[in-house]
Amino acid sequence: MGVTSLLLLPSLLMIFVFLGLPLVVIFMQSLQDNVLLQFTPPGIENYKYLLTRPYYFDVLVRTLRLSLLTTFFAIPLGYLAAMAMPVLKGRLANMAIMALTFPILAGPLVVILGWMALLPDSGPLFGPLVRAGLIRPPRILGSETAIVISQIQFVLPFAILTLYTALRQIPHALYEAAASNGAGGLQSFLHVTLPLSLPGVLSTTIIVFSLAASSFIAPHYLGGASDLTLTTLITNFVLGTFNSPLAATSSILLLVMMLAAMFMFVKLFGRFIRP
C-alpha cells in the first residue's frame, strides 16, 4: 500500500464507521416486523407494503417529481449564471460570489422562514396584488410549487459554483482556436463550451438532484401536510407513530431512488461526453 493510499485511509474509515455502518443498521431494521405488519423477520414485507399502497407510492413519485423539476430548472439557470461569472470584474465579481454563497452561509432554515413570510396570500409578494383585486389568492404556500421554488433557490448556489469551476477548466486556447477557424459565439459555445462542460453538468446534476431529494426543511415548512415527500414521511414514522422499521424502509427507498437517478443521469450524459 502506497503513501497515497494511506492518506485516503482516515476518510475511508470515517465513511465506513459513520455512514456505512448506520446504513447497514437501517437496512437490517427495514427487514423487521412492526406494529402494522406482523411477519417473521427478516423479511421484505415493509417494502412490499410501501410500494403497493397508492398513498405511499405517490409519496415516492412526488419526491422523484419534485427533485427532477428542481434539477430541470436549476441546471440551466446555474449554467447561465456560471457563464456570466467570468465576465464580471472587480467589486461586482466579489458581490456576485457573496450573493451566491450567502444562502449557504445562512442555512436553509433561515431562508425557508423568509419564504414563509413572503409567500402567504396576504404576504408582501402577493398581498398587495390580491388586495387590489388584480389576482386571485394564489395559495402558493403549502403547495408543490412553493417546494420547487424554494429548492431551486437553495440548490442554485451549489449548481453555479460547481458549474463555474467546470467552465474555468476549459483551456482558453480552445476558444482561440475556434475563433481562428471562424467560429462565432454560438458555434464556439456549441462545439467547445457545451461538450467540454458536460462532465461538470453531470456532477452538478447529481449534486442538485441529491440535495433536492434529501431536502426536509422545504417540504416540511412549505409543503402541504397531505403532500408528503419521503423525508417528511420518515419523520412521521419516527416521531408520530414510533415505527422505526417503516422509517428505515422509507430511508432505504430514498437511497435507492437517488442511486437509480444517479445511474440514469450517468447513462444519459455519458452518451454525449467525449472521452
Binding site: 399502497r53 397508492p54 405511499y56 395559495r139 403549502g142 402541504g224 397531505s226
Partner: peptide
Amino acid sequence: TEVLPQWKTR
C-alpha cells in the same frame, strides 16, 4: 391512507 387523500389540504 383513507382520509388524507380526500382532504387535499396544505
